[in-house]
């Protein structure tokens, strides 16, 4: 029976032609999410994909699930309403660096603070693509675009820092073209109860081509990416001989076999640690001194908003004498006029 019911990736594709630019990282992310949805085994009717505005936000039109392409910045709030209306749904928010971190910044942090069980997939290409090339809140200082012809004079957000600052319980990072890693991460995000934020480093072929190349280049991948796995030491490098240690409150790259360093000295990744100190250090790691952390960085269990909301309603329903609107209207001070 179960096999007959099993969905395939075709079940998640819509009849709509996918209109992202050829070579855009979004194609691969769409593929990874559809694969994750198949693997999750949740009924097709229970998926709801909510997006804001931007290239990435066209996403729902390319899915065969329920989908809602909303307005700029508000996907987090709309998705929150969807989840509260029906907590049984598996709700995904598709957003970009402009949508989530500029116009929607307030909703983004409050969604995370409330810990509503929504999977936020943040496509970070460090540029405004749909409006044809203006700098975004994740663009590096000095970045030259149409709206910053002399370079920006502002610092970017690091998405993971915002997640931690908003008391986030789940944060992961992936790369658009690594479908296997992305699929695993999306599955983990969906299984996590509460708000899960996945930052996907995404390449915009047209307006910001190669912005993540130093990290994602297959040749440099092992040197420049640290693939985090819960319970395993933080080791990277072509020869898997580099690792991280904690020294005086700072991370430090060490080489196994040099200066008496052994595998046992390397930090072991713990996604469940409520204290976000090490997670914060991992999120902040940047080239050239450090590899960039990939995978699930933080996954701390906590009660989700939707669980608490349902529990509270059930609890009050049980104890209250008011069971219907008629009961309510007749409660308190009333009097009879004969």
């Amino acid at each position: 029976m179960a096999e007959e019911l099993a969905l395939t990736i075709k079940d998640f594709k819509s009849e709509n032609e996918v209109r992202w630019c050829p070579g855009c990282g979004d194609h691969a992310i769409l593929n990874s999410i559809q694969k994750a949805m198949v693997a999750l085994g949740i009924q097709h009717k229970d998926y709801a994909v909510i997006s804001g505005i931007g290239c990435s936000s066209r996403f729902p039109y390319y899915m065969s699930t329920y989908g809602f392409h909303t307005i700029h910045g508000r996907a987090a709030a709309v998705a929150s309403g969807v989840k509260c209306a029906n907590p049984n749904l598996c709700v995904w928010e598709i957003t970009g660096d402009g949508d989530a971190l500029a116009i929607g910044g307030n909703h983004f942090i409050h969604l995370i603070r409330r810990n509503i069980d929504i999977n936020v997939i943040l496509f970070n290409n460090k540029i405004y693509g749909l409006t044809k090339g203006q700098y975004s809140p994740t663009s590096d200082r000095g970045f030259v675009t149409k709206t910053s012809p002399y370079g920006t004079v502002e610092d970017p957000f690091v998405p993971g820092q915002l997640v931690l600052g908003a008391r986030g319980k789940f944060f992961a990072r992936s790369v658009d073209n690594n479908i296997k890693m992305s699929q695993e991460i999306f599955e983990a995000a969906a299984r996590h109860k509460g708000t899960s934020v996945v930052e996907v480093l995404q390449n915009c072929m047209i307006y910001n081509n190669g912005i993540h190349a130093a990290i994602t280049d297959p040749k440099m991948k092992k040197e420049h990416q640290l693939m985090l796995k819960h319970g395993e030491p933080m080791i990277f490098g072509d020869n898997e001989d580099k690792g991280l240690v904690l020294e005086c409150g700072h991370l430090k790259v060490v080489k196994i076999g040099e200066d008496g360093v052994t595998r046992d000295d390397i930090l072991v990744h713990d996604v469940t640690e409520p204290n976000g100190f090490v997670h914060q250090l991992l999120i902040n790691m940047a080239l050239p001194d450090f590899p960039v952390a990939m995978g699930v960085i933080r996954a701390v269990e906590a009660t989700s908003y939707d669980e608490a909301m349902v529990a509270q309603i059930e609890e009050v329903k049980e104890t209250s004498k008011i069971k219907s609107v008629d009961d309510l209207l007749m409660s308190g001070n009333t009097w009879v006029v004969e």
Binding site: A48, I50, R74, S80, V82, C84
Partner: peptide, 11 residues
């Protein structure tokens, strides 16, 4: 916006 989400989801 949350209200619109709830309307989309049947409340």
């Amino acid at each position: 916006s949350t209200t619109i989400g709830a309307a989309f989801a049947g409340d």
